[in-house]
């Protein structure tokens, strides 16, 4: 600390002390000491405000979902009705789309975790700095490329005149239609979700002491038994966190089904888009949007109830 006495015997303090004093004084005026018990709420205020805005939007969407479209004026009807929900319930198309979204989300979670687990494990356990850096670069590079660009990349690679078909032709295999199907959509989603899953799994695996695995091995367990009885159970929080994030993002995805599905593999988000922007039926679009929120919430709630929040609990009690 600087403690300098001036020529006239007065103490001179560093500038930053004056700045801090001024800031403290201002804070005392804006948020007096007697308000200290509410400081936690003050810090929460931005988050609460954000949630409030979202809730307000949801309320508006809910209100909109209770009006049908009057096609003589293209304005919402005055009357409140559940007709839009009945339309969804009676439509084989929407039920099929909802089922496809759920099934696609499930498959994406399964395949993503199968790929992300070994990736994360090697990332955490490797002794080679080069390998770790290479894995990190490969993990983060896709973040710099948007989802749409990545989907276009697959269109180029998997297209009839794409790299994969060129390679197949070289080995005498006839060109195949690799794009525009349900498996292609799931493939695109898995590639998109992989970094998210690795980022959620890696901290959980880091928290498993290497010595625990060594101890299991020294007691006679082979690597498969160590994996099954030690690593996987201890990595559970990471697996749950990754499942939550990947399942909700996949369930609500728009771009991959739109671009890799060839128009016939819509998810719920695509059906919502169609109603808002293709047929101008905001009521039906709102009903579908609320259903998507409800399905997503139920899914997350069920996982929470069954397995806890995993790494998303941030160290809190599950």
């Amino acid at each position: 600390m600087t403690d300098v006495t001036g020529p006239e015997g007065k103490r001179r303090y560093p500038l930053r002390w004056h700045v801090m004093d001024a800031l403290e004084g201002a804070a005392g005026v804006l948020w007096p000491r007697r308000m200290a018990p509410f400081t936690g709420w003050l810090l929460l205020a931005p988050a609460l405000l954000l949630v409030a805005v979202l809730v307000l939007g949801m309320v508006q969407i809910a209100e909109s979902s209770l009006h049908t479209l009057d096609r003589s004026t293209f304005l919402p009807s005055e009357d409140y009705t559940l007709e839009n929900y009945r339309t969804v319930a009676d439509s084989a198309t929407y039920l099929k789309v909802i089922w496809r979204s759920l099934y696609g989300s499930f498959l994406t979670v399964v395949f993503t975790l199968i790929l992300a687990f070994p990736y994360s494990y090697i990332l955490v356990r490797t002794n080679s700095a080069f390998t770790r850096k290479a894995l990190l670069v490969a993990l983060f590079l896709p973040f710099f490329i948007g989802q749409v660009v990545r989907a276009y990349g697959w269109l180029i690679i998997l297209g009839n005149a794409g790299l994969v078909n060129d390679a197949l032709e070289l080995i005498g295999v006839e060109r195949q239609r690799l794009l525009f199907s349900f498996p292609t959509v799931v493939f695109g989603l898995v590639q998109y979700m992989l970094p998210f899953a690795v980022l959620l799994l890696a901290p959980a695996l880091t928290a498993i002491p290497r010595e625990v695995e060594t101890a299991a091995g020294s007691l006679g367990a082979n690597w498969a038994r160590v994996l099954w009885h030690v690593v996987l159970p201890m990595a559970r929080p990471g697996l749950i966190g990754a499942t939550l994030v990947v399942s909700t993002l996949s369930l609500t995805d728009f771009a991959m089904p739109a671009m890799l599905g060839g128009g016939s593999q819509d998810f719920i988000a695509n059906a919502i888009y169609d109603q808002f922007f293709r047929t101008a039926d905001q009521g039906l679009g709102s009903a579908l949007a609320l259903l998507l929120v409800a399905i997503g919430s139920l899914l997350v709630g069920a996982i929470f109830a069954a397995f806890g929040a995993g790494t998303l609990a941030m160290g809190g009690r599950e």
Binding site: S91, T93, G263
Partner: peptide
Amino acid sequence: WFSKFKEIMQG
């Protein structure tokens, strides 16, 4: 018409 077309194509 759009809905019916979608219903057939998404089926």
